[in-house]
Design a protein around this nucleic acid. Structure first.
Length: 159
DNA sequence: GCCAACGTTGGC
DNA sequence: GCCAACGTTGGC
């Protein structure tokens, strides 16, 4: 079991868009960065990932998704009309990959980037390191559990 | 909208 | 292989 963090802009495809899909499942397409692609290919069906909202008013972890498939070729790279077209990729020689994700649950209260940055146990997270721009990145089990505990603690605080 | 950080491209 | 130019990401 591995843990991941996947970024998306909520205006484009947020957690609620995923919730609206049949079976709360959708493919995670459009990754066009080799390092992020390699992480996608390292994913195994059954892994868990945080759904992270980026480039919005309050960036942070919005919920949890389960990786619902192993990686397979991203066919959106083959559509010349599509936003994510890449002429270098073909069905015979796919460059880009995607996985299916299924929404597990939405956090009652998102864990904001500010909260993540201020937590001492998370200072080595890839997310908060200098110049990080990867849209898919791995988490340690410790980082995963720390964020889960932050959600519980925040919930208790508000009650 | 600004800008820092990074990846990619292409000339040499 | 080097590196300048350019495009993109994403927080602020």
């Amino acid at each position: 079991m591995n843990y991941w963090l996947m970024k998306s802009e909520p205006d484009c495809f947020g957690l609620h868009h995923l919730m609206a899909k049949p079976k709360h499942t959708e493919h995670w397409d459009g990754v066009r960065n080799y390092q992020a692609r390699n992480f996608l290919r390292a994913m195994k069906k059954g892994d868990l990932a945080f759904f992270y909202h980026s480039s919005c008013a309050e960036p942070g972890v919005a919920g949890i998704v389960k990786i619902a498939s192993n990686a397979y070729p991203d066919h959106t790279a083959w559509n010349p009309e599509g936003e994510h077209f890449d002429p270098k990729s073909s069905p015979e020689n796919p460059i880009w990959y995607m996985v299916d994700v299924k929404l597990e649950r939405e956090f009652k209260h998102p864990i904001t980037l500010t909260a993540i940055k201020s937590h001492p146990a998370l200072k080595n997270m890839k997310l908060v390191q200098r110049g990080n721009r990867l849209s898919v990145l791995p988490l340690t089990a410790k980082e995963w559990n720390t964020i889960l505990k932050m959600e519980v603690a925040r919930d208790a605080l508000i009650k």
